[in-house]
């Protein structure tokens, strides 16, 4: 599904990896190892070189906005540009079931962004990214600010995405989470993949 060959960016690479259909690939490594840089480079958010393709279609043949709708990157810290939560969604009402499934009240969409906690923002940003119906999800520590219950709800949502045919590249600090969720785990250090880190 997603193929990455010789991907380089500042302080990153070269990186080669493939992500298959219905696969969750976990990426682990110490802080500053380049985990987020790799996700940003795949999403084409930083200048980078190398070949990245989705289902055989080269990234460079697509306009960047179209690429990012297919390969959705969810940063560890989400960004918000309007005052109310619902303004960040194309169809707020269609998003309500997912908001509830992640352990948030359905009317969270009617709140102002200012009152959201970090964990609430993280979950709402996941719902927002799923609205685009992406083929691949690049998730940067999606449960870092969550209590165990909320983290379990997010993990269930990630599994559901995989079961629906999406591929997931998951950056996580948490070895147990990687073991619970991932089909494979890769280790990254100093900007380079350093092999499989067990399944």
């Amino acid at each position: 599904m997603l193929t990455v060959e010789g991907l380089r960016a500042a302080n990153l690479g070269p990186i080669d990896l493939t992500l298959g259909d219905r696969e969750i690939l976990a990426l682990r490594g110490p802080s500053g190892a380049g985990k987020s840089l790799l996700l940003r480079a795949i999403a084409d958010l930083d200048p980078n070189e190398g070949r990245v393709a989705l289902d055989g279609t080269d990234r460079d043949t697509l306009p960047a906005p179209a690429w990012r709708r297919r390969v959705a990157y969810l940063p560890a810290e989400s960004g918000w540009w309007a005052d109310r939560v619902a303004e960040h969604f194309q169809e707020p009402d269609a998003a309500r079931p997912r908001v509830r499934a992640l352990g948030l009240p359905a009317d969270a969409l009617d709140w102002s962004v200012a009152r959201l906690s970090t964990g609430e923002k993280q979950r709402l940003a996941l719902v927002r990214a799923l609205e685009q119906d992406p083929r691949v999800l690049l998730l940067d520590e999606p449960t870092s600010a969550l209590d165990p219950e909320a983290a379990a709800a997010v993990e269930a949502a990630i599994r559901e995405q995989r079961d629906n045919g999406r591929a997931v590249l998951l950056v996580t600090h948490d070895r147990k989470q990687a073991e619970r969720l991932a089909d494979r785990t890769l280790a990254i250090a100093k900007g380079r993949l350093s092999g499989e880190a067990g399944s």
């Binding site: 906005p65 990012r68 940063p75 960004g79 918000w80 685009q132």
Partner: peptide, 12 residues
């Protein structure tokens, strides 16, 4: 506003 701008870029 870097994060807010990039969030919009990421949504296409």
């Amino acid at each position: 506003e870097r994060r807010a701008v990039e969030a919009q870029l990421l949504l296409g």
